[in-house]
Structure formats: C-alpha cells, structure tokens
C-alpha cells in the first residue's frame, strides 16, 4: 500500500506541472481558437531565463522565478503581437502553422543561446531545501507530529512514503496559482472581459471590450504560469532546448482531455494525465504478470526472459491511451461544451 501512496504523490506532482502548462494552451484556445504550439517553448524559456539569472546575477532563486514569470509574460505578449495578431482574421490554419513556426524558431534560438547540452541548476544556486541529497548523510529530524516526520531531506509519512520539499513546493505553487487564476477569471473585470471574448469576440468588441488587449493579457497570464512550471521542472529534472516538446505535448493532451477552452478542465486533465502516466509505469507490469499467471501463462511472462518491460518503457503512450479513450467517449473532453464553431 505504501507504494500506492508514493505513486499517488509522484502522479500529483507530475499532474501539477502538466496542469500549469495546460492552462496556457486552454486559455488561448478559449479566446482565439488557436492551438498555440509555441507555448511549450515559453515553458522552456522560463526555465532557461531563471537559470541564467541565478547563475550570472546575484538574484536569489525565489526572485528569479518571479522575474522569469514577468519575462515570459512579455515574450507571450510579444509573440501574440508579432506572430498572431496580424493573422487574427486569417483562416485558422494560417495561425496554426505560424504557431508551429514560432515553436521551431524559439527552440533553435535556445539552442544557439544556451547550447544543445541539457543543463542543471547546481546546488550553489538553489535554496537549501532544494539541494541534492547525499546518500552518505543520515537525514536530520526536525520534528514529528501525528506519525509524520519532518527531516531536512523530506517529509516522511511512513518509512516508505515521502514527499520531498521540492515536490511539495510544486504542488503548493500549482494550487495557489490555479486558485488565483480561477478567482481572477470569475471575479475580476478583466476576467469578465476574457469570458466575454471567449463567448463571442466580435460581440464583445462591439460592447466596448478591447479585445486585442484582453488577448494580450491572456497570453501573458498563460505564459507566466508556464514559466513557473518550467523553472520547477528545471530544478527537479533538467533544462534543455527540447524540454518544451515532450512536456508541452503532454500538457496539450491534458487540455484536450479536460475539454480545450475550459480552465477547470485543463487543471483536472493535467492531474489525470500525470496520474495515468505514473500509475501506468508503476502498475502495468505487475498487472500483466498477474493476468499471465492466473490464466496459466506464467511461462510467457518471465520478467528475466523479456528484454522489454511493458509498462515503464511506454509510460508516455499510456497517458495518451487514456486521453484517446476519454475523447472517444466524450468528444468534447471532460468539461468541454459542444458548440457550433468548434465543430
């Protein structure tokens, strides 16, 4: 059971990252029906920018995240202004192809600026709780409460279930940002303008909403959230010019799964994709083994004979299978509403 809880935690962390990126896809789609393929690159730029700041300036890590958010918001708005705004009334395919072009362009720009080699945040640039944990040192226990132990390495729920502070930060940041986004869209004036644009851009414009401004702000918000996800992935894993590709496509799938255009859908979709990926990798193999053994094909499944282990090598595929199943059952996604112009 310990293993189940630990996988649940792993899935939620990954899901939180996907959700933060997916929101960027879904917000833009909701307003201008554009699949902004360059959003994955914004995520990548966010990570690189924070990396550059902490390495070459005395700016501390937490400030760097914030500056990186602002920077990415700027890049997002610039991208809209330069690449998408001139195509606002062009056929949707033109904008889509432009998005792919922007994506390739930014990816190669990063390759030129920072090199093709994946980079990592080294310990001296990170706050103490994010630093690498040496296996040689016994973790120092701070205190224990209700059976939960807080050490300098992680929070131990039991002997085999732990949550590293880095992962905790990712979850907390994702929740805070998601809730504030939700409040922003449903309670503020700009949120109302966004919803109006999403319903009908022309009508909103006729009612006096400055649609171009609203769209720019949408890009800015989505990009800022993407930047946070980028920095956290950079700290947790590594940073490379192609990091936006895999995470971006997975997050896009999450947005589709939740019903593209719907912000709550993107959050739930992200979480589901993360969980599907982790549980697929963790449980498909034992499942196949059990099935083979119960139907008398134990010979067939001898984990030492086969070179491929089925689940863990194909974890990305598993999450897409989940997405495809959902789309087959509910073509509009979990939270999407059927509407005429989305066809």
């Amino acid at each position: 059971m310990d293993q189940f809880y630990q996988q649940l935690i792993n899935g939620i962390v990954l899901g939180g990252i996907y959700a933060l990126i997916a929101v960027g896809y879904t917000m833009v789609y909701g307003i201008i029906q554009l699949i902004n393929f360059a959003h994955g690159e914004i995520f990548m730029l966010g990570a690189y920018f924070a990396f550059t700041l902490v390495n070459f300036t005395p700016i501390p890590f937490w400030v760097a995240i914030f500056v990186s958010m602002l920077f990415c918001a700027g890049v997002g708005m610039l991208m809209d202004y330069v690449a998408y705004r001139p195509l606002r009334n062009a056929p949707r395919l033109s904008a889509l192809i432009t998005a792919i072009g922007v994506s390739i362009g930014l990816q190669n720009l990063a390759r030129i600026l920072w090199g093709a080699k994946p980079q990592t945040f080294t310990d001296d640039t990170l706050p103490t709780i994010f630093q690498q944990i040496s296996p040689m040192k016994e973790p120092k226990v701070f205190f224990s409460i209700f059976g939960v132990t807080f050490t300098d390495a992680a929070i131990q729920f039991s002997e085999n279930v732990s949550l590293a502070y880095l992962d905790l930060t990712i979850i907390v940041l994702a929740i805070i940002l998601m809730v504030s986004l939700n409040r922003l869209v449903s309670l503020t004036k700009i949120g109302k303008a966004m919803r109006a644009c999403a319903q009908n851009r022309i009508a909103a414009n006729l009612m006096g909403v400055r649609t171009n401004q609203v769209i720019a702000i949408t890009f800015a918000i989505g990009s800022a959230l993407g930047a946070v996800a980028g920095v956290m992935v950079g700290v947790r894993d590594n940073i490379g010019p192609t990091m936006g590709l895999h995470k971006g496509v997975a997050a896009f799938a999450a947005a589709v799964l939740g019903g593209i255009g719907n912000i709550t859908g993107a959050m739930v979709g992200g979480l589901l994709m993360g969980l599907a990926e982790v549980f697929g990798a963790g449980y498909i193999d034992p499942m196949i083994a059990t099935i083979c053994h119960t139907i008398g094909l134990g010979e067939f499944y001898d984990s030492e004979k086969i070179s491929h282990s089925y689940g863990s090598g194909y974890r990305i595929a598993i999450s897409y299978i989940v997405m495809i199943i959902v789309i087959l059952i509910r073509p509009t996604g979990l939270f999407g509403k059927a509407s005429a112009h989305r066809a």
Partner: peptide
C-alpha cells in the same frame, strides 16, 4: 522522459 519517480517507486 525526465521523470523516473514511477519506476523508482516500484523498485523501492
């Protein structure tokens, strides 16, 4: 992939 926690948890 860059996330290996699922495999590592199984191994753990």
């Amino acid at each position: 992939n860059t996330d290996f926690t699922a495999q590592l948890t199984s191994i753990k």
